[in-house]
Design a protein around this nucleic acid. Structure first.
Lengths: 210, 210
DNA sequence: AATGATATAGCAAATATTTGTCATACAAAT
DNA sequence: ATTTGTATGACAAATATTTGCTATATCATT
C-alpha cells in the first residue's frame, strides 16, 4: 500500500523527475502533478493525496498562498515546501502558512524520500540549513533582549499597559493610587526611552519584556 | 582527529554511558563530564570542547541558564540540549537561550552521533517531535490571524499607531486631517473590538496585523 | 551617616485620546 | 437607482495621558 503524493511545480522537468522518483519507490505513488495552484482545492479534492509537495515559486497563486489554502480546506493534509533558495522571508512565510516541512531541492533522493515518510508520520522534516535559520530566529530575539533595568513593579505595571488597562484600572489592580501608577509609568518611559503608552507597549512586546 | 565533547548532566549513570558512547566512536572524544554547571565558564575554559552536551534538569544553574552563559562567553561553541521531556516551556526556553539543537534522551545512539556531527557541521539537529513543535509555534500564530477586514488605509494607520505616532503625526504622515485620523482609528477600534490605542497595538503585534 | 534606588503619594497644567454626532464624495455592487 | 463600503472632514465634550514639580519612607550600599 503506497502513499498518494501530489506535486505542484511550474517546472515541467522537475515535475517529471520527482514524479518518477516517487513512482520508482516502493512506498509512494504520484497521484497528480500540477503546474500551478490556481485550482488547488479542486485538484486536491479530485486526487485525494495523503501529502502535498509544493514548489514555492509559481505564477498565479504562489506556494505560500497555496499552503494557506491547504491548511484552510484540508486541515490535516501535510504540505512539504520545496525550493531552490533559502530566503528568510519565504522560509518564515511558509512556516507561518502552516507548512509541515521545508526542503531544498538539492536534497538527495534518499533524504528526500525519508523526509516524506517522516512527514506522513507526523514529523517536520527540514533541511539542516533551514533548521538553523529557524533556531536562529528564536535566539536572535534574545540577543537584543536588554532588560532596561526595569524593577519588578515596573515590569508588572508595563504588563498591564500591554493588556490595555487604563491608569485607573492599574491603580485598582495593584492597590496603589492613580498618582503612583502615573509615577511608575514615567519611570518606565524614562528607562525605555519612549514617551507614550503605545511606544512602550510596542517595545515591550517586540523585545519580550513581558 | 576526533572532536572534543563535554557533558553536563546531574545523572552519573547517564554521564558515564554517554561518555562511553562518545569514546567508543571513531570521531568523538569525551573530554569532560560535569555534574552541574556551577563552574561552567572555568570548566569550558579548561576542557576546551568543540561541542557541549547539556542536560536541561540540573540543580543550581539549569541547562537553559547554562546555555545562555555559553552563548555569552563562548559565542561559537555549539550546545546541544538533552532532556527526557518535551515541555514547550523548556524547548522554547532552550532555543531562545541559543541552543544549537534539541535532542530527546531516548534518541538512538546512531541518530545521536549523527546529530553531533550535524551540529559540528553548523547544523541544528532536532528530534522530530521537537521540530514539529517548533513549526507549530509559527503556524499557530497564523491560525488565529483573522484580518478583521481592515482596509488598507486602516492597516496603514494601525502601523503608525504601533510605531507610537500621535494623531497629529499620523495626520501629517498620511496627508489627511487630524479628524480623519480620528475617524479611521475609531473604525479600527470597532473592527478589532478594542477601545484604546494600547489594546489595538497589543493585538496588532500579537496577531501580526502589521 | 550619607547616598542612591525604589515605592509610595499629591497637585496642576498642558496635551492627547476617545466618543457622539453629522456630513460629503466616490466607487462598486445589488 | 439605491444601497453599501470607503475615505474624507468637522465640532464638541468627556476622559485619559503626559509632564513638571514636590515629598515621604524604606532598604541596601558605601
Amino acid at each position: 500500500m503506497s502513499s498518494r503524493i501530489i506535486i505542484f511545480d511550474d517546472n515541467q522537468e522537475r515535475l517529471n523527475s520527482v514524479a518518477m522518483l516517487l513512482n520508482l519507490s516502493d512506498d509512494f505513488t504520484c497521484s497528480g502533478t500540477f503546474h500551478n495552484a490556481n485550482n488547488l482545492v479542486a485538484d486536491i479534492t479530485n486526487s485525494k493525496p495523503e501529502l502535498v509537495l509544493m514548489d514555492i515559486d509559481m505564477p498565479g497563486v504562489d506556494g505560500i498562498e497555496a499552503t494557506k489554502l491547504v491548511r484552510k480546506h484540508f486541515d490535516a493534509l501535510p504540505v512539504i515546501i520545496q525550493t531552490n533558495f533559502e530566503e528568510d522571508e519565504r522560509i518564515f512565510g511558509s512556516l507561518r502558512a502552516g507548512a509541515n516541512g521545508y526542503l531544498l531541492k538539492k536534497t538527495s533522493p534518499e533524504r528526500f524520500l525519508e523526509s516524506l515518510r517522516e512527514a506522513l508520520d507526523g514529523g517536520a522534516p527540514m533541511t539542516g540549513s533551514i533548521a538553523v535559520k529557524v533556531l536562529q530566529h528564536f535566539s536572535t530575539q534574545t540577543q537584543t533582549k536588554n532588560n532596561y533595568n526595569l524593577t519588578e513593579r515596573e515590569k508588572h505595571i508595563l504588563s498591564f499597559l500591554v493588556k490595555g488597562y487604563s491608569y485607573k484600572l492599574i491603580a485598582a489592580e495593584c492597590g496603589i493610587t492613580y498618582n503612583t501608577v502615573n509615577n511608575h509609568i514615567r519611570n518606565i518611559y524614562d528607562k525605555l526611552y519612549v514617551n507614550s503608552a503605545t511606544e512602550a507597549v510596542s517595545l515591550a512586546i517586540k523585545q519580550r519584556l513581558v
